[in-house]
Computed example of a mutant assay.
Amino acid sequence: MIVDFDVAFEDHVLKGDQFVGSGSNRILYLHGAGASSRHGHRLLRGALQQRGLGSTCFDCIGHGETGGALAQSSVASRTRQAQAVADARGLPQPLAVFGASMGAYNAIRMTQSHRVDALVLIVPGVYTPDAYEVPFGPAFSAVIRRERSWADSDAWDILSRFEGRLLVIAAENDATIPLEIPERLVAAATRAQSRQLHVVQGAEHNRLWSLLAEEPSRFESAVDMVAAMLT
């Protein structure tokens, strides 16, 4: 069963859905930037639902059915949107927070405001604090396009205090996220209950789960690895 919902946030209405699980429903799934929306993550969410693991996902401002202008949002706003959805939907804590691309950084930030015992970061992007509150647009792009602007991200420090389970999934041929970022994220999580980096061979930044789905045994193995984070 899939349940659609609306959550009021400032002057917007966030559109989302819950893939209802028969076992647990504590996954908050955060999509990436660009043309991303919640619908791009149905492969993994559907497979997890079949294993009894429900997930909640929504379209951030400027994306999908929520719509609006990207300039009305920022990385910081996306974190606040995620917090608003988790609270409005009454997601049980501790949360399991999944984040793809930019959403991975928002997922890391969620550990500062909510109890989180599992983080799954997929082709993760991280950002310098200088970019956090800057509205999306030319000014934001100028900050993040500085050479290695991500190197001084606070993500490393935040993760150094995380005590749950961490899984970072990287794409071998990611032209957007250098492998150094997922490697450093795992290395930073020194207090984590467990930490693992999995590099999907042949995958690209926007073609990871769809590539795996072409080989059912490979896809199922990857989903099992993700599902193990919640047990």
Rank of each mutant, 00 (worst) to 15 (best):
G32P: 06
A47K: 08
C57R: 10
T56L: 12
I61L: 09
D59Q: 06
S37A: 13
G40Q: 14
H31A: 13
S37R: 11
L48V: 08
A33F: 15
I27H: 01
G40W: 10
R45G: 01
Y29V: 09
F58M: 10
Y29Q: 04
C60G: 13
R45Q: 12
H41K: 05
L53G: 02
S55F: 07
R51S: 04
R51A: 05
G52F: 04
L28C: 07
G40D: 06
G46V: 00
G32W: 03
G40S: 10
S37N: 12
Q49V: 07
I27Y: 00
F58I: 11
R26S: 14
Q49R: 14
Y29G: 03
L44K: 12
G54K: 01
R51E: 04
I27E: 00
R51Y: 02
C57H: 10
I27K: 01
G32E: 04
I27V: 14
G62F: 07
G32N: 09
S55P: 06
F58T: 10
L28G: 09
D59V: 12
C60V: 08
L53C: 01
Y29P: 01
G40R: 15
H31P: 04
R45W: 10
A47G: 09
C60M: 12
A47H: 09
L28F: 00
S36A: 14
R42T: 09
G32R: 10
I61K: 04
H31K: 13
H31S: 13
L43D: 00
G54A: 07
A33S: 15
D59H: 06
R26K: 13
G52V: 14
R51I: 11
R51K: 15
G54N: 01
I27S: 02
I61Y: 02
